[in-house]
């Protein structure tokens, strides 16, 4: 056993030696003291599931709202052996995802991937991958507004007390208001959830479709809000309950259509307008998932159309 480990470690070290990060910068951009501070906040967040831990957020080379919280968490936990996947709106090929991946490839010298199964750290905005996460994954969520009570109570001093004393009546006020206005709970993303029966969190702007994936997930889930300077976490295998009413139970979005490209019926779909006549199709928002299904021979109603050609070009580039 001992020999094997040593061999593995040696192999690893020689791998790492091959990859160099940008000269003149510390590994993963942040200095070691900052990483230490962020890691301490992460440890505290993991120890108190759902509790928003303040941390002294740093200036990052990108504007607030572009994922500065997520980046700082990733930078603090990423090792040379990690493989990073970044998704934005479910896709690996959007500007934000590509830039953040590029940033870490350069600054940490890590391998990046678009495949969920290959990744060890997945930084995300708006989605959780369709593939089942494992213990090998760490999810890093970019959070714009970490305070789920902000909408009903603008005072931070008051919301902190409400969390401390589990005074969560106001959170249901929001859902009540939804039903009163729309006849159902119309909140479709950033849907509040109770972590381990303790704190209510904002799960970041993921669709409520993904809320059930938060529950008892084998992956460690970390949430970072750069502008608001908060970090919180859901440890692996933690109970996460979405709030609801007895007579209006929690429900996820459903679609009558399947994915136009891969024919998936159980994934989260984006609507795409095809032309000025308003024709539309639905495609998986998780581009990696969709592509692998296509490669495996699954076909949706639009699979052979022009759109799929474009998709092919896009993937090739």
């Amino acid at each position: 056993m001992q020999r094997n480990v040593n061999n593995d470690t040696e192999a690893l070290l020689s791998d790492i030696a091959k990859i160099e990060n940008e000269p003149g910068y510390n590994h993963a951009f942040l200095d070691e003291q900052t990483k230490r501070m962020v890691r301490r906040a992460i440890l505290k967040a993991v120890a108190i599931p759902g509790y928003q831990v303040p941390f002294s957020s740093r200036e990052m080379p990108m504007p607030y709202g572009w994922g500065t919280g997520g980046i700082q968490i990733t930078a603090s936990i990423i090792g040379k052996a990690d493989v990073l996947k970044v998704i934005d709106q479910g896709a690996d090929d959007t500007t934000n995802a590509v830039s953040i991946r590029g940033f870490f490839a350069k600054m940490a010298g890590v391998a990046t991937t678009e495949k969920t199964s290959e990744a060890t750290i997945i930084q995300t905005r708006h989605r959780i991958p369709e593939d089942k996460l494992t213990r090998a994954h760490t999810m890093v969520y970019q959070v714009p507004v970490p305070e789920p009570l902000r909408w009903v109570e603008p005072r931070e001093t008051e919301t902190r007390k409400m969390h401390a004393h589990s005074e969560y009546g106001a959170m249901h006020v929001k859902l009540y208001e939804d039903i009163a206005r729309h006849g159902r709970i119309a909140t479709s993303f950033d849907y509040p959830a109770l972590v381990d029966g303790g704190y209510i969190i904002s799960p970041s702007p993921i669709p409520k479709f993904d809320n059930p994936k938060l529950d008892m997930s084998p992956a460690l889930q970390l949430f970072g809000a750069g502008r608001e300077q908060r970090i919180y976490a859901i440890p692996p295998y933690t109970k996460v309950t979405s709030l609801d009413f007895e007579d209006y139970p929690f429900e996820v979005q459903k679609w009558e259509d399947c994915c136009g490209l891969c024919g998936a019926t159980t994934s989260y779909l984006d609507e795409i307008i095809l032309n000025d006549d308003g024709d539309k199709m639905f495609v998986c928002s998780d581009s990696d998932y969709c592509q692998r299904r296509c490669e495996a021979g699954h076909k949706g109603p639009f699979a052979d159309d022009r759109i799929s050609d474009e998709q092919g070009e896009r993937n090739a580039s």
């Binding site: 009903v152 969560y168 009546g169 006020v173 009163a180 009413f245 209006y248």
Partner: peptide
């Protein structure tokens, strides 16, 4: 609470003490 309906204003205390039936 100025930004929620009259019904939600009245209902808040009920929800705060565990009422979960809309």
């Amino acid at each position: 609470r100025g930004n929620v309906s009259a019904g939600a204003n009245i209902g808040e205390r009920l929800m705060g003490t565990g009422s979960r039936h809309y």
